[in-house]
Simulated assay, not measured.
Amino acid sequence: MNFDTLSATRQNQLIAFDRILTIMDELREQCPWDKKQTIESLRHLTIEETYELSDAIIEGDMKEIKKEIGDVMLHLVFYSKIASETNTFDIADVLNGLCEKLIHRHPHIYGDVKVENEEQVKQNWEALKLKEGNKSVLEGVPKSLPSLVKAMRIQEKARGAGFDWEEKHQVWEKVEEEMDEFKNEFNVIDNQAINIDKAEAEFGDLLFSLVNYARFININVETALERTNKKFIKRFQHLELRAKQQGKALQDMTLAEMDVYWEEAKRL
């Protein structure tokens, strides 16, 4: 590759990448905190940074997204630097491995495979992973994923293997079936004791079917629920503020009194 023949934009990108690698080398050599870190010690910090990036994306804050991408990028460079110190791998190995995987997994771009749509791309992707040694299409779903996200990924993987509903109404019928089973088994009207283990299993089936329907109509369940979480937090904090302005504690207010401020918050 001749650096001088590259566009100015690509030159600036490569210079910036070289700069962070140089800074990482210096920090690892000179900073007491950076020198102490291990791949294991960085793990929980990486998880935190990933969630911060997720928050910024949900908020649609591009300035914050840029900042959080930088924080995640730092961690990726950090891991690679630590591994290079034991000659395990370095950042070049990581990036070249990624490039080779992308080329191999996109034969419709870098080979002679023909595809008609996105679904065929996904099916080819899963088929190639099985040829690479995966015993199941579900092996690529991390065990530690939050359950809601995991349900969505499991269903997407199964769809990539051709195992899915054909029509939207079929998926909704499954939701209604699971809802009816839950309602009939655990009638909320009577006060009979509930078998918690059985109720939990049935409720899990209901949630899984709802995730399935959301996926079928292109709703990201994690994003949808997090937006509702944020909406509830905003309204509840308004309720707390209005109660404080009235010199009252929430614990001392009736539900009817709180509902006035809640409805007020919904109009904001």
Rank of each mutant, 00 (worst) to 15 (best):
40 E>R: 09
45 L>F: 03
49 E>T: 01
55 D>R: 09
56 A>E: 13
57 I>K: 05
57 I>M: 07
58 I>A: 05
60 G>R: 04
65 I>F: 04
65 I>R: 12
66 K>A: 13
67 K>Q: 07
71 D>P: 04
73 M>H: 11
74 L>W: 02
74 L>S: 04
77 V>N: 03
78 F>H: 14
79 Y>I: 09
80 S>I: 09
83 A>L: 13
86 T>D: 07
86 T>Q: 09
88 T>D: 08
90 D>L: 03
91 I>Y: 13
92 A>S: 10
100 E>W: 11
101 K>S: 05
104 H>V: 00
105 R>K: 08
106 H>W: 01
110 Y>H: 12
111 G>K: 02
111 G>Y: 01
115 V>Y: 08
115 V>K: 00
116 E>Y: 04
117 N>D: 15
120 Q>K: 13
120 Q>N: 14
121 V>P: 09
121 V>R: 15
123 Q>C: 02
125 W>Q: 09
126 E>F: 13
126 E>Y: 14
128 L>A: 05
132 E>G: 02
135 K>Q: 11
137 V>K: 12
141 V>F: 12
141 V>K: 04
144 S>F: 05
144 S>R: 02
146 P>Q: 05
148 L>W: 07
150 K>W: 06
152 M>R: 05
158 A>P: 03
158 A>S: 13
164 D>E: 11
164 D>Y: 14
167 E>I: 02
167 E>P: 00
172 W>T: 06
